[in-house]
Design a protein around this nucleic acid. Structure first.
Lengths: 257, 257
DNA sequence: CGCCCCTTTGAACCTGATCAAACTGGGTGG
DNA sequence: CCACCCAGTTTGATCAGGTTCAAAGGGGCG
């Protein structure tokens, strides 16, 4: 286990009740939420710090809370009967976790912090009570869940249809746009995960990821040094990711063309 | 386009307002829904027939309704910029569709009937109004959406982790259990989709599907004749699907073992 | 009966996996 | 301070699963 600096937990007071000034408020709450609504929300939530490599929850844990990442990055992965891992997602600030657990009432995957992180912990039962009085919040919640389904469908397209190059390009442009949406640079960012984790996420091996990064670098599409990435030719990466191949229009997996 | 028998639309009366006797009521409504609740639900829905090969909705159509399949089978698929298709799911009676469209307010995929089918059409806006008065229905709806996310994650594991054999075994055992849950035989059923569609769904080619079916047949695990399937050794298929390989415990993509 | 689509089967090929080894950078201990 | 260590990464060589290309074999419907 890699050593890391254990954060000293601050007094609990400083970790509560500051929704109005929260940096991910716009992702957590619907537009136009008023003060009294925020206040109600504040009363049911609590904040929690998760050190790097630590699990927020594990598969089969009973489901009680939803989580919203305030700060940091997580990975979620499933483990099958044979012990093989599959990373189902990398989550960053403003993104929700554990919505897949509502149905079975226990968690469907492990959620592990990729760096020291902080989450908002939202008791699902209490949240549903709020829904009856705050229809805008309910609708917002439905959109969030729906988005999660749509996102998963996009990954099916990636894993079922794309070749290795396309997968990595899609991965990088996805990260890029998500950082952009958070006000960070969309062309220069740091990978929070290892090559191995990227490979697992994309259904490829670590060697393939390494080779592809070298290839993209050689083609002048990006710079990469350790975990520091700089996208130099976003257009080419995006074109590759969206399946618009210069050579032939379609790619090998396009039986209906 | 394959010709099909166009059903003569029955009088609209016979297609409405029979929730209490609906064969998929238990999948549509929460347990213990009472008569008055059912009646309210009946008032907002309508039934609709979709002939084979016809689309229920198409990608980018504006989202207005959710759909519940009463009878028949559908496939949903996305098309990327390069024209490549990816089938994201095969849906059967009692399953919901279009929950991925709530967020973007337009459909994320095409939904096409694999045979003459009948759906329940549920106006989403009116449904949300019911939620405020019927909390059990709301919770049921949340479980449905959550289940959809969990199902998608399962497919990620399949597409990212499993080899061809495992994918097909997982596909067959999944169908088996779903038919079983509907009161049909779980060992003998008819495939509603072509080999090509199965291949696309599993990220494989039609030739691979054909070869694998032949192989399974040769191993005595199943009988298959055209679209008629009979599972003879469900246990072996299940073991293969869940990643418990007899040779080595884990499979090639298990870097953390 | 004959067409057409779907499917099966065979052979060659290729992408990405596997196996192997060297390299890197940061942390540790002498 | 430097040698060492270790995990993560890069790069090379070989291998193989699954695709691609090709052609023949049904089955259903006109």
């Amino acid at each position: 286990m890699i050593p890391y600096i254990q954060l000293v937990p601050p007094p609990i007071q400083s970790l509560r009740n500051h929704c109005a000034s929260c940096s991910v408020l716009h992702l957590c709450q619907p537009k136009g939420a008023n003060k009294s609504e925020l206040h109600r929300f504040e009363q049911i939530i609590s904040r929690r710090r998760i050190p790097r490599e630590r699990a927020l929850y594990r598969m089969n844990d009973p489901f009680t809370h939803l989580y919203l990442i305030r700060l940091g990055h997580f990975k979620t992965y499933q483990v099958n009967a044979g012990g093989a891992h599959q990373i189902t997602g990398f989550q960053m600030s403003g993104e929700w976790m554990a919505m897949d657990a509502i149905s079975a009432e226990h968690h469907q995957c492990d959620a592990v912090a990729l760096e020291d992180s902080e989450v908002c912990e939202i008791p699902f039962f209490k949240l549903t009570k709020l829904f009856t009085e705050m229809p805008a919040l309910l609708h917002h919640f439905h959109r969030l869940m729906s988005k999660e389904i749509a996102r998963a469908e996009g990954r099916m397209l990636l894993l079922g249809n794309m070749r290795a190059e396309q997968r990595l390009a899609a991965f990088l442009t996805d990260l890029s746009s998500r950082y952009g949406a958070r006000g960070y640079s969309s062309i220069s960012f740091q990978l929070r995960m290892t090559r191995e984790e990227i490979g697992n996420y994309l259904g490829l091996t670590i060697e393939s990821i390494s080779r592809l990064l070298s290839k993209f670098k050689k083609q002048g599409w990006l710079n990469v040094e350790n975990r520091e990435v700089e996208l130099l030719d976003h257009a080419s990466l995006k074109a590759l990711a969206t399946g618009v191949e210069p050579e032939n229009g379609g790619g090998k997996f396009a039986p209906w063309n």
